[in-house]
Amino acid sequence: MGVMSSRTANSSRPERSHTAEYSVSFPFPVTWASLSRGKISAGPSPAPVASAEAEIAPADPNGNGPNSPAQWEMVIPKMTRPGRARPQPPAPAAIESAPADKADFTPSFSTALARLPFAWQPALITAAAVGLLLGGAIWVGRGTQPQRVSEPPRAPQTGWVRERAPFFPESSGFQRERQLLLYRGSEDQSDYRLQFDWTPDSNGVGWVFRVRDPGNYYAARIKLVQPGSPAVFALEHFAVIAGREGQHSWKTGTFTRSDPVIRVSMEATGSVFALNVQGNRAANWTDARLPSGGLGFFKESNEQPAIEAVQLSFSLPGRDFQGSFKDLLP
């Protein structure tokens, strides 16, 4: 009926030889126009509730239950980013060695025993031998497993510190800054739980976790986007790596109850992060770029977040915090 011409020489459909005059052609081009959509953004960050990606996101395999207030699924960065050289923290200042007493210094080897008066030496040798025998007897009596003497855990230095954290947003070339309020004693931790009571407002409340330094951390924020019944909140989370803020993942949901104060909690376990709002799972995601680091809050304006009770729980004992957010402020 028709004749086909292919862009490739070895098409399965051979071209027919023909003499007829052809008047209509049906081109079937291979196109990729959708790759040009949503190209490198030159403008401001997108509005939270207008993510087109969410429409095509698959269902949450980690079980957003039927009671979940989530209305659509978040973009979850599950994959590990390719390796990248991180800026090295400044090397600690070299510890200055004690000035040597240069006068009449002759190198020699000696023990503490050798420096004791001669009369004490036999008594000390006997005491040491008895001690060794006793120790040996106790060890044999306990079995063959040597018992490692562990140092008592040092009391962590806890409290709150403020840090300035300059960053470059993904959508702009201008440097901006946010303030981090970090809980001391959490710097070396990886698994923890943050819980706070929040009075919903449009400013929202932001928190940071796995803070390695002011240029490398994860952050999340919850804010009220539509008051009423049911009120709608927006959740976002993102990473700042080497001072550059990455893509924000967004999700909206509705409050299941019209409580004046909303309990929000987030658990970090390994590379898995789970966020609950009013006791319901609101989001979960994975990210393995920052395996450990501090915990705290962040703010980008002068307004104080409307938080009341704050509770931090760690896997190690003696580091938990429980108190009012106002107590953290100077």
Binding site: M1, S5, S6, R7, E21, P27, P29
Partner: peptide
């Protein structure tokens, strides 16, 4: 030339 780069099916005047 316009159809270069894509597979094209052509109908003769008679068929049209």
């Amino acid at each position: 030339v316009e159809d270069a780069g894509s597979i094209t099916y052509r109908l003769s005047r008679e068929t049209v």
